[in-house]
């Protein structure tokens, strides 16, 4: 008989919740906690808010200092570099950095040599921030732990903005996903989902910055992207907030993932959670 076990932890700056389905509760809990341990490891390794993270070590380095990085970070940065290039700078792990003259800095202000696993700052003020990809990467790593443990049905939810589904619940086509602010519901199976918005209803100014200008995003937009990996879904949901909507289709076509699609694109959000949905129905955009 199948049972559902729920594990959660405050990590990645949010509440991470795992729901796992199987026939052995002890095994499910062990798998869930090991997956959460992996998420915690990623958080401790990547967070720019922790002094002991690898990101902080890099951010503390002097201009011109050639830093050796580990293979895992080398791979993740290779993906970030490719995303920066493919998406014309709309995704940038350096976004928000400013130089001594106050001008915005970009990925181009870092020298990344993946063949030698070396990273060098080219300007004062360059700061890495994996906020636009870290949650997705952590969920992908957690999925590997669960699959290795033989867990075939699970939903991983990081703070409500990133979800990753393994299989689906019994007698269901997918895991139920709800977006209360727009009164929307849908199902997710064997895919990842990431939602980015310019700002939370309680925020006056967006905390998402336009990489090219360093300015907070304007408007109240929301994008939900589905992809085969949570890393890709997170990169794309961040980038598509920055990219004008008439260029979204082109951006999506540049990605080599048949599962990629924009699930929801909303140009105007209600001002509070209790607000009624906007008069127009959200569109589901497919490739």
């Amino acid at each position: 008989m199948l049972e559902t076990v729920r594990c959660e932890r405050l990590v990645l700056g949010c509440r991470c919740e795992l729901r796992l389905v199987g026939d052995d509760r002890v095994h499910l809990r062990a798998a869930g906690e090991t997956a959460l341990d992996e998420i915690s490891r990623i958080d401790a390794w990547l967070s720019c808010f922790r002094h002991d993270s690898e990101t902080s070590r890099i951010n503390r380095a002097d201009v011109g200092e050639s830093l050796r990085i580990d293979h895992e970070l080398n791979d993740l940065l290779a993906v970030c570099a490719a995303a920066w290039q493919t998406l014309d700078g709309a995704f940038d792990p350096v976004a928000g950095s400013r130089g001594e003259d106050g001008q915005p800095l970009t990925w181009a202000d870092l020298e990344f040599d993946p063949s030698r696993r070396r990273l060098t700052k080219l300007a004062n003020g360059v700061r890495l921030d994996f906020g636009g990809v870290g949650k997705g990467y952590a969920l992908d790593r957690a999925r590997r732990i669960l699959l290795a443990a033989g867990v075939e049905r699970a939903l991983l939810n990081a703070g409500g903005s990133s979800q990753l589904a393994l299989g689906s619940p019994e007698n269901s086509a997918g895991w139920p996903i709800a977006l209360p602010v727009l009164d929307l519901n849908w199902e997710l199976a064997n895919a990842a989902l990431s939602t980015s918005a310019t700002k939370h209803p309680t925020q006056k100014v967006s905390d998402v910055l336009t990489p090219q200008t360093g300015q907070p995003l304007e408007g109240e937009r929301l994008v939900t992207v589905q992809a085969g990996t949570a890393t890709l879904a997170e990169i794309l949901s961040t980038a598509l907030l920055v990219i004008p909507s008439d260029r979204h289709a082109r951006a999506i076509r540049s990605i080599e993932d048949p599962q990629v699609k924009i699930v929801l694109r909303q140009q105007q959000l209600p001002t509070s959670r209790s607000a009624t949905p906007p008069p127009h129905s959200p569109r589901v955009v497919r490739r």
Binding site: D75, V79, Q85, G228
Partner: peptide, 9 residues
């Protein structure tokens, strides 16, 4: 590296 959809790097 391949699953992320960015082949370039």
């Amino acid at each position: 590296l391949q699953s992320t959809g960015f082949a370039a790097m």
